[in-house]
Amino acid sequence: MKRGIKIALSIALLSSLSFAGDQFAMSDADRAMYEEMLENNPADMMIANGSELLEEYCGGDAGLAAFFGVSEEKLPAYIAGFPRYLPEFKQVVGLDQALQGLMSKNGHKPFALKSSDMFDMSAYAKSIANGEKSNIDINANQHMKDAYALGEKTFIQQRGGRGLACMSCHSPEVIGTILRTQPLPDLSAKGNAPAATWPAYRMTKSSLRTLQRRFQGCMNNALLKVIPLGSPEMVALEVYLTEQAKGSEIAIPGLKR
């Protein structure tokens, strides 16, 4: 019976998706206006702050390159391959966790993953790869393969009182349909490529957010139990979506509604 209700609800959701369609669809001119706003992204100020923090706590770009064991020239391409399996962590980690490791190595207390300083610093670190193509390698080793599989599982896992999964609103079948005035985005490299455009400034939150933080907001809205930042499932979800958007050009910070 309970399952029946869940199915009914998901059908109701799907029908409401196509229903709201044309009435509030945004014009191309309006979209262009919002895209122009990227030129003056308030997150540029946060990125500048992140750059200072990286200098202070991690020895700047050079310190980061040395930590990863790559030359400064190779640093952008290396960063474009995150999340990665790093042997010293014995797990697949996001860029933010790698920065925590470096801070700790340098004798500093690492910023919390959910702190705005960490958002600023990891956004700056990722912006080093601006212009590079996202080059995650999910076949690099067994750890990456496992992370991808866990990410896919997390993506399609129905959870919460409404039995929703990430997939409910982000499967290829519903791309472009409107959910309460917002077109559901194509998460692949052809679409808005989250892996390449997060961290981003959220206009409705007036702050810089990371992709994992966005996942949390989404889970919260869909009444799913929120998964902690940096947890294996969360990193795996980032791996999964990064693979979907592989090859897209990194442009940090993004600007999102």
Partner: peptide, 25 residues
């Protein structure tokens, strides 16, 4: 307060009319 002034284009000549963006947190 974190703030930023941007001049566009980045390279400009005397007499040119440029855009000035000022943003602040």
């Amino acid at each position: 307060r974190k703030s930023l002034i941007k001049i566009k284009p980045k390279k400009y000549k005397d007499g040119e009319v440029v855009k000035v963006d000022f943003m602040v947190m």
